[in-house]
Every structure is written in C-alpha cells, then in structure tokens.
Write a protein that binds this DNA or RNA. Structure first.
Length: 261
DNA sequence: GTCTTTGTTGGCAC
DNA sequence: AGTGCCAACAAAGA
C-alpha cells in the first residue's frame, strides 16, 4: 500500500487530526518497529505537540514544537488511524493525546519503522533519500536520468535516486508513458524522458486526487488490471506479467513495446 | 503446505 | 562505483 500517493494521504490525515494537541503518553507495542529506542521515542514525544506534517518520498515527518521530529515509514503494509479507541488491531505504536484520541501507527507486517531525529536534512542524507518524485523539477529529473544506467524500472524504484515510487505506481507510470519497464535508460531520447516526467507527475497526482484508493483509480489506469488474464484498458490486449529483481510487474506488450532495446 | 505481496537492506557477482 | 539479483524480514491471502 504505502507508496508516495498513499503516504501523502496519510500526511494530510495526520495534518488534519493529529497536530497541536499535547501527547500525554506514547505506547510502543512492538519494539521491532522502533528504529529509535522505545525509551527515546517516549521521552522525545511525551508532553509535546506535533506541529506539522511533511513528506519526502515514502517518509512522513512530524516535527514537534521542540527540537525533535517523529519520522514514520510504513514498510509494505501500514496506515494511520486516529480515533478514541485505545486498542486497534495491528497497531504497533500509539500516541495518546490529551483530547482522549489516539493516533495509531498500524503495521500488520512489522516492516514499518519509527525514528526520532532533530534534523530532517541530516536524516534524509543519512538514510539516502533521493529527491521526491512529485517535487523534483523537470531539468533535474532529465539531468539525473541522463547519468543513470540500467533499466527504467530499477531507476524509478531506486529510493536513493528518486524517492516515492514503488512497484505498483512504477507499473502505472510506464504504462502511461508507453514504455517497457525493462527499457535501458540509455536508449531513451530527450522527448521520451520528457514524456516520462510528465506521466510520472500525472500518475502520482491523479492517484492522490483519488485518495490513493485502488478502487477509485481512473479507467485508463492499468493498476486495476494487475492480474493475469485481464485486458489492457487502452488496446484491449492481454496484460502480461514478468519479473525484475524478484518483483513481479504487469504491462501491456502491445502498448509498451517489446523491450525497445 | 506453497507461492506471492504495495518496502528496504545487506551480501555477492560482475 | 554502479548495476543486478537474491535472501531475509513478517504475516496474510490465494
């Protein structure tokens, strides 16, 4: 679930509900998700308020009014829940506000992480988080792509190169751009790279507009057809499945070329 | 029981 | 150094 559009929805959710109220108590229900020690997480947050909700790639940044910033990463499965109920299934950490409400960090597979940092820039550098896929400017994107080697899909999913795009949305971006995911970057011309940039922004923005809800994806998206045997929304041909570095991906052979190298 | 899954990381090979 | 691949992590669903 949590790629850039999903995390952007979580960011807005946190911004709407969880800011400017005192955190009374912090409970870490599973130490596995605590990238910063549970003691430090509790000490840094208790008695403070979250003041902002920012995002870079798949990371959510929640600065307090003090020095410290709560950082969330959701892993393969996870979301936020703001409610009065103290116990929520799969909640691995919970902030208890003085309003009585809880912000639950829900993470069924325990692959998500919570960090505390006092400097977002430093944290981003240390974690090697590349420029945000929605924030990057075209000239920077083109410049980076021209220097990058290897296959398209590997590049767009490389979080240190460009952050926010995962397996699902990369499939959609390549479908919209009419490019095969295994295309070698070096075989693309300026126009194709420019088009890729436009499609990338378009797919991410549209997904956010649909609140990153898979049920609400536009008709012309391939995401709802990520199943073997389904038909391409554009040409009606059969959607095919392949693998790259162990990750399955879906594409339309007719609309996205053979391999174009 | 087996395989696959929306993410990341560390190890190995080239 | 950069690129590709795999296993591992964890748990749920097909």
């Amino acid at each position: 679930m949590p790629e850039l559009p999903d995390v952007e929805i979580f960011r807005r959710y946190a911004e709407k509900h969880a800011l400017s109220q005192e955190i009374q108590d912090v409970s870490i229900k599973d130490d596995k998700i605590a990238a910063t020690s549970p003691q430090t997480l509790k000490k840094s947050l208790t008695g403070h308020q979250l003041k902002k909700a920012g995002r870079v790639g798949k990371y959510l940044f929640l600065p307090t009014e003090g020095e410290t910033v709560l950082v969330m990463h959701f892993g393969m499965t996870g979301w936020l829940e703001y409610q009065k109920q103290e116990e929520v299934q799969y909640a691995k950490a919970s902030l208890h506000f003085d309003s009585g409400y809880y912000l639950h960090f829900v993470n069924p597979r325990k692959l998500g992480r919570l960090h505390i940092t006092d400097n977002i820039q430093e944290f981003s550098r240390y974690m090697q988080i590349g420029p945000d896929a929605l924030a990057i400017r075209e000239e920077d994107f083109l410049q980076k792509m021209k220097k990058k080697k290897g296959m398209l899909k590997s590049a767009l999913m490389d979080q240190s190169f460009l952050s926010g795009i995962g397996n699902i949305y990369s499939d959609e971006i390549f479908f919209q751009a009419g490019l095969h995911p295994k295309t070698k970057i070096s075989n693309l011309n300026e126009a194709q790279l420019g088009n890729l940039f436009i499609r990338m922004k378009e797919v991410l923005s549209l997904a956010i507009e649909q609140r990153a809800d898979p049920e609400n994806m536009p008709e012309h998206f391939i995401i709802p057809r990520r199943k073997e045997g389904s038909s391409c929304p554009s040409c009606g041909g059969e959607v095919r499945k392949d693998k790259l570095s162990g990750r399955g991906f879906y594409y339309c052979p007719r609309c996205q070329g053979g391999k174009s190298d």
